[in-house]
Structure formats: C-alpha cells, structure tokens
Design a protein around this nucleic acid. Sequence first.
DNA 1: AAATACAGTACTGACGTAGTCCTAATTGAA
DNA 2: TTCAATTAGGACTACGTCAGTACTGTATTT
Lengths: 156, 156
Amino acid sequence: MIRMNKLTDYGVVLLTTFAREPAHGISARELSARTGIPQPTVVKLLKTLLKAGLLVSQRGTKGGYALAKLPAEVPVSAVIEALEGPLAITECSVPGMCEHERRCVARPNWAAVNDVIHEALSKLTLAEMTRPAQAHPPRPAPLLPSIDSPPRSIAP
Amino acid sequence: MIRMNKLTDYGVVLLTTFAREPAHGISARELSARTGIPQPTVVKLLKTLLKAGLLVSQRGTKGGYALAKLPAEVPVSAVIEALEGPLAITECSVPGMCEHERRCVARPNWAAVNDVIHEALSKLTLAEMTRPAQAHPPRPAPLLPSIDSPPRSIAP
DNA sequence: AAATACAGTACTGACGTAGTCCTAATTGAA
DNA sequence: TTCAATTAGGACTACGTCAGTACTGTATTT
C-alpha cells in the first residue's frame, strides 16, 4: 500500500471541516468534538497547517482557526505537502536524495508517475472534498459491503 | 512524501534487471552483485515475488530466477501490489478497513485519486522501465544537479 | 484578574520496516 | 556418490518513524 500518514489523512479531514463553513473560526476543542480526532492530535496538526500558511489563527477566549484561503483555492496536494513534504512515491523526486540518481534507469519513469499523481491531487480542492463527489476524474468507486475495524478518514 | 517502501523500490529494480534479458535465469547472488542490494535482502524479495507469481525459480547448482511473463506484460502496479498489498493512498480502498467509511464524505474523492494512481502504474510496464524513457505520460522531470546521500532506486 | 485558547518544545511508547540468521530441500557436477 | 551451489521457509532483531502526550508560555476576551 502506497499510503499517506494517518495524520495527513486527519489533516485533510480537519481542513474539509473548515471548508464546509469557511466564514467561521473554529477552536481546536470544537474540531476535536466534531471529527472524533483526539484534541492533542488536532492541536498538533493545526500548528503545522498554520505554519504552512493554510490556516490563520486567533488567540484568546473567542479564538480559533480559519482557512487562509477559499476552499476552492486549496488543492489537496498542498495539504499533503504541508504535512509530509514533497509529494512523490519515490525519494528521487528530490534531487540529492539518492546517490544513484545520475545513473538510475528507473528515475525518469518514476518522475512520470510522480507527475501523474501530483496532477491528480492538485486538481482536487477542499471545496470538492466537501461534496459527496461523483463528477471529477475517472469512474466512481465500487461500493461494497463492509465490516467495522480501525479508524481512518473520519467523517467531519 | 507519499512513498513506496525501500523494499518495493528494490523489487522494481530487481525485476527491471530481469527484464533486460528475459531469456536468462539469474541467481540471487548475481542479482545482488549487479544491483548492489545486499544478498539477504535480494533473497527475501525474490521469495515474495515468486509467491506472487511474477517469477519462476529453478533450484540447484545452475539454478536461479526468471520472469514468469514477458516484461511488457508486467505492469509496475503488479510489482507494487505483490510487495505492499492493495495500491492506494488511503486504507479505505479496502472495504472494512475504516470504521467510518459509510459516513465519510472524503471517501469517494479518495477513491477517484486512487484510481488515477492505479491507472498510471498499470500502464507502466517492466519493458518500459528498461528504457531511458521519455515518451509516455506527462512532461519529463527537471534534471537538476545533485549531491550524494542515502541509497534508493539503485541502477541495475 | 481570570478563563479560554493558541504557541512552542520536548518526550515517550508502539509499530512497521529493513536487514540478518539459521536450517532444510533440491539440483548439477566432480 | 559425494559435494557444492542454490532456492525454500521460517524466526529473530535493531532501528527509525509515527502517533500521541505533557508541559510551559503567550495572547485575548470578559
């Protein structure tokens, strides 16, 4: 499984929560209550997203966080990059990360794959994440029956 | 960074090595020498790839491994799935992995992204990995200067 | 002044990855 | 027939990252 961190997944959920009512500020406490993500973890994520410029903050009693931009202006790729660094499936997308990059025959092919992934995630914005979604990229996912198990991608 | 395992990266390198001369069998020892990947690690990977049906094996003195199919018939996605399981950036691609999947508003969007990634990696075959590559998907990667550091994606 | 909420940093435990090691089983060649 | 090379199949371990926690400080509102 090529996967995102749990925290990155949480981060997208948090920002999607903001995107549903972009005008309001929301406190970490409130976000934790709405998403089910533990408050300390929410706090930690918000700090990172703040530093990345995706959020603005307000201290004090009536304080909280809010989106720094309109939901339609924030691609999911920006969220992932804020929380995980460069968006790619191989480290060689960052020059200097691999000692073999100069003679590696695989590298140009990985770069192409990385581009495809990056493009897909750049086109998807927070505004689109707030909708039940049906109509952007390819075909819809098959909706199979399910059993319950560990938490991931919590609904806001 | 959304990334593959180091081992998966190695796996692709190993299979690409086979793809360059599909007719021959190659021993684990030989593969280690050619790729620079430690022999125990090579052995471990080959076992997994064998079980997945990507390789065939021959025991004994003149033994070794060979591709089970033509390089053009093996998509990179199959290699990744053999070594990492289902190919997706979120766990919710596997029904039952997430307790919130039924009410998660993000899920259909993730599914769409997963599809894009899966498609890109399905189109890329081992045959194409053996070529210096220039002409499939999008634009070529920028070739910037580099400094040396940890090993990844070793050239066969 | 007190309560609320953000800011920043340091720490800890758990888990998965990467890598190693050991003991069969099989085959080809001397 | 014996030996050497090679795969088969595990169990095991060290390490690093991730996820989560704790603590202290600063700002703002009432």
